[in-house]
């Protein structure tokens, strides 16, 4: 446990590691000697940026749920569906499994993404209670899963490109699509702004805090 949690970090060794090529250079080096990428021991203002993108994403997520995502014009009627409404009606109509999948992709993933980023960002403020392994896992999942929320935007685009059947049925993208797309992009930026090294820095801080009373 101790071995895996505690390690000599590049920063502690007075070095800065390149996130691209892993090359280390003395602290304060601007550009990576190997790949010429910009070097940051830790992302500057990482948490601030994360929160900024997070809030932007949350704001755009509101209209994404209020406005129709997709408009279906048929011979008989015109029907608009929102993200949540569509999934709920699907469940009502008996297709529970598909409904749940849709809810998972369109509702649970985006919202849990918000929650997960917020959780990680908030947890970093209290290093003592942090389980870095858990946080890191959460961070990895968020980073991996973020882009898949884009599916909804793609589906609407495909359907509206495909379903042009005159008066019988036509599908049009609703205004929510652009909001939802923004949400996905913003949350992806939010996740990318979070420096994972901060998670592991907490172990050092925790150790420092633990050791302080002992010395005193």
């Amino acid at each position: 446990m101790a071995r895996s949690d505690q390690a000599l970090t590049a920063r502690a060794a007075g070095l800065v590691g390149c996130r691209h090529c892993g090359t280390v250079a003395p602290l304060g080096t601007e550009l990576c000697p190997r790949c010429k990428g910009r070097l940051h021991s830790r992302f500057p203002h990482s948490l601030q940026r994360t929160w900024a993108w997070w809030i932007a994403g949350l704001i755009t997520y509101v209209p994404a749920n209020l406005y129709p995502m997709m408009i279906m014009d048929t011979f008989v009627t015109s029907y608009k569906s929102t993200i949540v409404g569509g999934a709920i009606e699907l469940i009502h109509s008996g297709d529970a499994f598909v409904g749940l999948v849709v809810i998972l992709a369109s509702v649970v993933i985006p919202t849990s993404k918000f929650l997960a980023i917020a959780y990680v960002a908030l947890a970093l403020r209290n290093p003592r209670k942090v389980n870095p392994h858990l946080l890191h896992k959460v961070y990895e999942v968020v980073e991996f899963i973020g882009r898949w929320s884009m599916i909804d935007v793609f589906v609407v685009a495909i359907l509206s490109a495909l379903v042009h059947l005159g008066a019988v049925a036509t599908i049009l993208p609703g205004i929510a699509a652009i909001s939802f797309g923004s949400t996905v992009i913003f949350t992806m930026f939010s996740a990318l702004s979070l420096d994972p090294r901060l998670i592991w820095d907490t172990t050092e801080e925790a150790k420092r805090e633990r050791s302080r009373p002992r010395r005193a």
Binding site: T9, G17, C18, G22, T23, V24, P132, H136, P196, D201
Partner: peptide, 10 residues
């Protein structure tokens, strides 16, 4: 030397 991009371990 190589630094872990995720946790900065050296």
């Amino acid at each position: 030397l190589i630094a872990c991009p995720q946790c900065d371990a050296l």
